[in-house]
Simulated scan of single mutants.
Amino acid sequence: MTLDQLKIGASGTITSVGGDGPLRCRLLDMGLIPRTRVTLQKIAPMGDPIEIRVRGYELTLRVEEAEKIEVKEDA
């Protein structure tokens, strides 16, 4: 599943980060690297953007960016 498919309050572990060139580098620079745990905190009223908690801070991503991050949902 991708990061944008998590439910509010659900957590998962990043398995891979897709995207091309600068976008992928930016996502990795923000701490979104494989084996990192993330939690979906909020979804904006119109569905975009979403807020996640990663490495102790909140990060807001567009759904388009979140679709490029593969996660395995925690049981």
Rank of each mutant, 00 (worst) to 15 (best):
1 M>C: 06
3 L>D: 07
4 D>E: 07
4 D>F: 02
5 Q>W: 01
6 L>G: 12
6 L>Y: 08
6 L>N: 12
8 I>N: 02
8 I>D: 02
9 G>K: 03
10 A>Y: 05
11 S>T: 05
11 S>V: 01
15 T>F: 02
17 V>Y: 10
18 G>F: 12
19 G>E: 14
19 G>V: 08
19 G>R: 13
19 G>D: 13
20 D>L: 13
20 D>W: 09
20 D>N: 10
20 D>R: 13
22 P>L: 10
22 P>E: 14
24 R>I: 08
26 R>Y: 08
27 L>K: 07
29 D>P: 01
29 D>I: 01
30 M>W: 15
30 M>P: 08
31 G>H: 09
31 G>E: 10
31 G>D: 11
32 L>S: 11
34 P>W: 13
35 R>F: 01
35 R>N: 13
36 T>E: 15
37 R>G: 05
37 R>N: 07
38 V>K: 10
38 V>G: 11
39 T>D: 05
39 T>C: 06
39 T>R: 12
42 K>T: 13
42 K>L: 07
42 K>G: 02
43 I>C: 11
44 A>Y: 05
46 M>V: 09
46 M>T: 08
46 M>R: 14
48 D>H: 01
48 D>Q: 02
50 I>T: 05
51 E>F: 00
52 I>L: 15
52 I>M: 12
52 I>Y: 06
54 V>D: 06
54 V>C: 15
54 V>N: 06
55 R>Q: 12
55 R>K: 11
56 G>W: 08
56 G>V: 10
57 Y>V: 05
58 E>R: 03
58 E>M: 00
58 E>H: 01
59 L>W: 03
59 L>Y: 04
60 T>Y: 00
61 L>S: 07
61 L>R: 07
62 R>H: 09
62 R>C: 00
64 E>R: 10
64 E>V: 07
65 E>Y: 06
66 A>Q: 08
66 A>F: 11
68 K>F: 04
68 K>D: 06
69 I>G: 10
70 E>D: 09
71 V>L: 05
73 E>G: 02
73 E>F: 04
74 D>V: 10
74 D>K: 10
74 D>H: 11
75 A>P: 14
75 A>T: 13
75 A>I: 06
